[in-house]
Design a protein around this nucleic acid. Structure first.
Lengths: 111, 111
DNA sequence: ATAATCTACAACCAAATGGTTGTAGATCAG
DNA sequence: CTGATCTACAACCATTTGGTTGTAGATTAT
């Protein structure tokens, strides 16, 4: 599985984008359905510009895409980015299993 | 599955901790085997104090635990925290599937 | 044509982040 | 005992972050 191939900086951006509750909330909304930026902004107790910045952070992390439609900018979540983040965490689990295997092996040799 | 139950702040800390390549690297090392803080620090081109801070961030995110052994502080990765992070991302996938299902349903009604 | 809506973007600000150096307390080795 | 090692923690600094307000350009509705 030659998936991923994310640079360290991209991973930085990806997790950093997810490390804010407003942004996670935006991603969830964008997963469920399309929204314009101002439609999203309506849900939060902060300025439109602040939400705009959050969307921009998500966009640079590839978690979201924007597409102009008339005067609106439609925000869509990018399923692949979330998958990649998940896959990264899967690798951690893998390392763990390798460690367990290694230890098990050593214990077996002691028999 | 009544897993998770992480507060938003805990999720913030978790992803924020993962959003730094040095910290991710530390976690990977700690998964593979136990290290003292200074043993970890030896691998990075930054001061001991800087690494100490990174470990502290990881600790507050529950990604790592420290245990005093003599004059050393042994760092161990916490498998459960990584699992929780993964599980969070799984939920995003779930929302996506729900959306697909919803759309499929609507399309079926149109038949 | 005018007004309302949606967006972009700059300038600003306080707080957090990621690094540094320096000092001091425990613990271990010779 | 003395010196080396490991850690804790404070103080400091530059940059980034997450928010604000304000201005201006497009697009849409009346």
């Amino acid at each position: 599985m030659v998936v991923d191939q994310l640079s360290e900086s991209e991973v930085d951006r990806l997790f950093h984008a997810l490390a804010d509750r407003t942004r996670r909330s935006i991603v969830l909304r964008a997963i469920s359905e399309e929204h314009s930026v101002s439609a999203l902004a309506a849900h939060y107790a902060m300025s439109f510009a602040a939400v705009q910045k959050h969307v921009s952070v998500l966009e640079q992390a590839s978690l979201v895409t924007k597409e102009k439609r008339g005067r609106e900018q439609i925000v869509r979540a990018n399923r692949d980015a979330v998958r990649k983040a998940r896959h990264l965490l899967d690798e951690y689990e893998l390392i763990w299993r390798q460690r367990i295997d290694r230890i098990t092996e050593i214990l077996a040799e002691d028999e």
